[in-house]
Simulated assay, not measured.
Amino acid sequence: MPTVSVLSSHPCHLGEGPSWHPGRARAFWFDILDRKLLEMGLDDVAPRIHDLPFHATVAARVDDDRQLIASDAGLHLRSIDNGALSELRPFWDERPGTRSNDGAVHPSGALWISTMGWRFEPGFGRIWWYRAGELRPIVDGLTIPNAIAFSPDGRTAYFSDTLEHVIYRLPVDPATGAPTGDRRVFCRVSGGGPDGATVDADGLLWNARWGGHAIDAYDSDGHLVTTLALPARQVSCPAFVGPKLDRLLVTSAFEGYDEDTRAAEPEAGFTYLVDGPFRGLPPSAVLIG
């Protein structure tokens, strides 16, 4: 039976983008709205909190010393040791009022990154493919693109449009992570919107249900197989962490809460750790060229 505990009680306004760095044995995640990067070993008492000069959403491992950070200011390389940032390329979505959102690294080293409007404008959401310096759009016409994840064999990509309550699947080239066909509905989600996701070693897609107090697991046919209840209503993204990748870190948020709502849900924005009978996939490194 899975057990849920609080990893960090630091309340994130919009906790998102968790990742595990195996070389450093550290978890990283963001508070997007407050422009923070949080870093924590699983045995630490509290996270180390780094201030950022932009609203960042994705931290992809480059190697043991560097991360690729995606934000509303573009792509930056970050030194893990001292936090130094160097611009790789400026923000790539030419439409005003957009920012980066979800992202994940395909086994080929390709980084899929989504962008969206700050005001959730319909159709402003896109997904982009980045690999070895090349960047191009691959999915268009979304609103809040989330749930980017890949099957263990690298032949299937998943993503969602949160406000549509739909998760899609898309065939991709395992050698490059680029799409080879059209998107199809993978599943429809009720009781909340499909937010961030990750895939485990058995091919189950674990999806955070924003507004639903839950993480849901779907098999490769899109059937719901299990649900994990979380204290926070606005759970945002899961990531497998730990030396054996057998623990699930889950971020959450208090975005949009007034004073009364925060008082009624004091654990909103906390970061959780779920222990259970599962095992994640080793995180891939992004290829920057």
Rank of each mutant, 00 (worst) to 15 (best):
residue 1 M to D: 14
residue 2 P to C: 10
residue 4 V to W: 14
residue 5 S to D: 13
residue 20 W to S: 10
residue 22 P to Y: 10
residue 22 P to D: 15
residue 30 F to R: 00
residue 31 D to Q: 05
residue 31 D to C: 07
residue 32 I to R: 01
residue 38 L to K: 10
residue 41 G to K: 14
residue 45 V to S: 12
residue 45 V to H: 11
residue 52 L to A: 06
residue 52 L to C: 01
residue 53 P to D: 11
residue 53 P to F: 04
residue 53 P to M: 03
residue 53 P to C: 04
residue 53 P to T: 04
residue 54 F to Q: 14
residue 55 H to P: 08
residue 56 A to S: 13
residue 67 Q to M: 13
residue 69 I to H: 14
residue 71 S to G: 03
residue 71 S to R: 03
residue 76 H to N: 09
residue 76 H to I: 03
residue 78 R to W: 02
residue 79 S to G: 11
residue 80 I to E: 14
residue 84 A to W: 13
residue 87 E to R: 06
residue 94 E to Q: 09
residue 96 P to A: 08
residue 99 R to T: 04
residue 101 N to A: 00
residue 101 N to H: 01
residue 102 D to Y: 12
residue 113 I to S: 01
residue 120 F to V: 11
residue 122 P to I: 05
residue 122 P to F: 04
residue 122 P to E: 05
residue 123 G to M: 02
residue 127 I to S: 12
residue 127 I to W: 11
residue 132 A to I: 02
residue 133 G to R: 07
residue 133 G to Y: 00
residue 135 L to T: 13
residue 136 R to H: 08
residue 139 V to G: 02
residue 140 D to K: 09
residue 141 G to L: 05
residue 145 P to G: 13
residue 149 A to W: 01
residue 154 G to T: 00
residue 154 G to Q: 00
residue 157 A to K: 00
residue 158 Y to Q: 07
residue 163 L to I: 14
residue 164 E to H: 12
residue 165 H to R: 14
residue 165 H to N: 12
residue 170 L to Q: 00
residue 171 P to E: 03
residue 172 V to E: 02
residue 175 A to E: 15
residue 176 T to K: 07
residue 177 G to D: 10
residue 180 T to A: 07
residue 187 C to W: 04
residue 191 G to Q: 06
residue 198 T to F: 06
residue 202 D to Y: 12
residue 204 L to P: 12
residue 210 W to H: 13
residue 211 G to F: 00
residue 225 V to H: 08
residue 228 L to Q: 15
residue 230 L to Y: 06
residue 232 A to H: 02
residue 232 A to K: 01
residue 233 R to S: 13
residue 234 Q to C: 09
residue 236 S to H: 13
residue 238 P to Y: 02
residue 239 A to V: 01
residue 240 F to R: 02
residue 242 G to N: 01
residue 244 K to G: 14
residue 246 D to M: 05
residue 246 D to V: 03
residue 252 S to A: 00
residue 257 Y to S: 09
residue 259 E to A: 10
residue 260 D to L: 07
residue 261 T to D: 09
residue 264 A to T: 05
residue 267 E to C: 04
residue 276 G to C: 03
residue 278 F to P: 04
